[in-house]
Amino acid sequence: MIRAEGLCKRYGAHVVLDGLDLRIDRGERVALLGLNGAGKTTLFRCILGLTPFEGRLSVDALAAGPSAREVRRRVGYVPQRPPIFDLSLAEFVELFTAIRGAATDGAAARLEAFGLPLAARGRQPLRELSGGMLQKAFLALALGDGRSVLLLDEPTASLDPESRRDVLRAVAGADLETTVLLATHRLEEVRALAGRVLLLGGGRLLFDGPVEELEAAAADERLLWVELPGPSRVEAARALEGQAGVRRVYANGRGIEVAVASGAGLDALEALRRRGLAVTDFHSRPPELETILERLAGEAHGGPVAAGTRRAGSPRDVGAGEREEP
């Protein structure tokens, strides 16, 4: 169980966590979302006692902090970018299981399941492992026995699809009593693993609820991809400025991407046709997680949202070329 009350973290004048209140119960699988710099990694570092903070923070009712060895004993951690120790795979496993006073058998079995058998790969230096294999090695250690909390900081960021599936399967198979807090930018991971989503933005909790509610937050929006010849892209962006239903326009390599209110896509294309702009191709799709996060972060500047509720607020129309910042 993780509990935070009024958790604050500042780096100089920059406030990263601004009075965060949070409760995650034993066995919950929670996705931690937020744009880059939202404070996801900082929250992990506070839980691990790697950085001082203000407010209260506990794991299994034990206060977290730099001297909280027992908290760290209960937490398995996979960092965003696994650091490369100047060790072989076997030395790495041996060192970090020994620090925890555990045998290497469990980690060795998990590595075997990940396609990294110690018998065959143990002598291989960590620096020679691919990013995906390195990530799996860290996950194999983090999933060790006796952990009541698993902190995963974008653990699949550098993995190929097959490795990503292996990792997600391993996390999904973690002890049901283990609380999992997964920082990610991938909607499919949120859907596969998390029953609950926390969205951080501006140091605060902007959303706390199931993933379906999060997706519903952007159900009224579609992303329209429009391919145009190079010189006409700027003109196209200008043409859509102020057009009813158009919220954002992003210039891209071969065309423009337009965030439009549902049902307003054809109107946008008609506006381009009226200007005589030659559209060579187009398609429409639902917004990606990043887009949803940008919208919610942009909407919510008024304070934290209660658990199980989505922040209310109507989408704000944005002129062409603008991009909302968190």
């Binding site: 006692g49 760290r72 004993r73 937490v75 951690y77 960092p79």
Partner: peptide, 10 residues
């Protein structure tokens, strides 16, 4: 980055 990982252990 290895020091931070070591300090994240018990």
């Amino acid at each position: 980055g290895t020091l931070e990982y070591v300090l994240a252990q018990p």
